[in-house]
Write a protein that binds this DNA or RNA. Sequence first.
DNA 1: CCCGAATGAGACGTGAGTGTCTCATTTAAT
DNA 2: ATTAAATGAGACACTCACGTCTCATTCGGG
Lengths: 183, 183
Amino acid sequence: MAVDRERVLTEAAALLARRATTSMDEIARAAGISRATLHRHFAGRDALIRALEEHGIERFAQAMDAARLDDGDAAAALRRLVREAEPVAGVLAFLFTENELFESGPVNAGWARLDARLAALFRRGQEEGDFRVDLSTAWLTEAFYGLLGAGAWAAHEGRVARNDLNHSIAELLLGGIRRSMEK
Amino acid sequence: MAVDRERVLTEAAALLARRATTSMDEIARAAGISRATLHRHFAGRDALIRALEEHGIERFAQAMDAARLDDGDAAAALRRLVREAEPVAGVLAFLFTENELFESGPVNAGWARLDARLAALFRRGQEEGDFRVDLSTAWLTEAFYGLLGAGAWAAHEGRVARNDLNHSIAELLLGGIRRSMEK
DNA sequence: CCCGAATGAGACGTGAGTGTCTCATTTAAT
DNA sequence: ATTAAATGAGACACTCACGTCTCATTCGGG
């Protein structure tokens, strides 16, 4: 029975996002394997966290590629990105909130590249007149992660239907709460 | 030199929000006191967390009172709430993300009451025609905490100027990213 | 100025989780 | 059926943070 690496990482992210002090034993049992096997696949706790980071970065980069951020207007691109990133929202939420190991190393560089791509999308929207310019791209980037994380958690807790997640996140990001007359 | 309890709790929340494994020693030094003194004021780690919960709930309730959520239109009330809640945003972010200890006890009840008041504000905005109705009040509540937390962290990290925080959070919440013609 | 209270610095035992190991058992391919 | 690889269960020492303690120093009111 080969270990399902994807499942281990997903379970680990779900648990760690909710309680960062979750023990290796709890993670192992949640993933349906023993602690020994968990250690065989991930050298240690740090290695598991790092694998989580790499996995999240890789998947988010794929989501960005799939969303074709440079095509069409920025709003549509942002909508596509939310849709593509939603499956990894849980992992991203963990990485966004628990960035203890982000402080240095190549992981930071990888994350910075994603940040830059996201900020570039917002900048494009501003330059093309679609996005408001009184909100900095840095803030929009943070807000994106914040809303994605909040959405992932809300869905995980059952407070928001998973089917509504894309719409909820994208619409709030783009249009805000206020009832708008342009749609 | 009397210990500034407020500062201790604020620093603790800021650190714990982003790294739940932060040691008591790190918290103490961030607050400018020794580990011994920290233990003199908070019986232990659990007691510190519990104090953080009570403090956050109390301060947020005060912020809600000060914001007069029932006065004027809902958008203005929300703006006031963001302004009043901003000083405790760090604590709220911690409570929002690390709700491991929320699962039971009176703390949960206190938190639920705040949730209800916030949701009521959003519902009022929807009923009065100011807020869009395609986003559930539950989601708006979650998004509020998420954005507040993201803003607190961004300001703490220097990525967003603290002076812009109110505007950034309130405007994104209310108006979204899209350039609007109604302002 | 004096004295009690509060703090800082450090030592010390304790406990939980970690990482490594061994060995029996199970799985999967040939 | 045979065999090699993978897994589960458990033991073991080790580390690190915790909680408690002592003692010297500093702070602040009377």
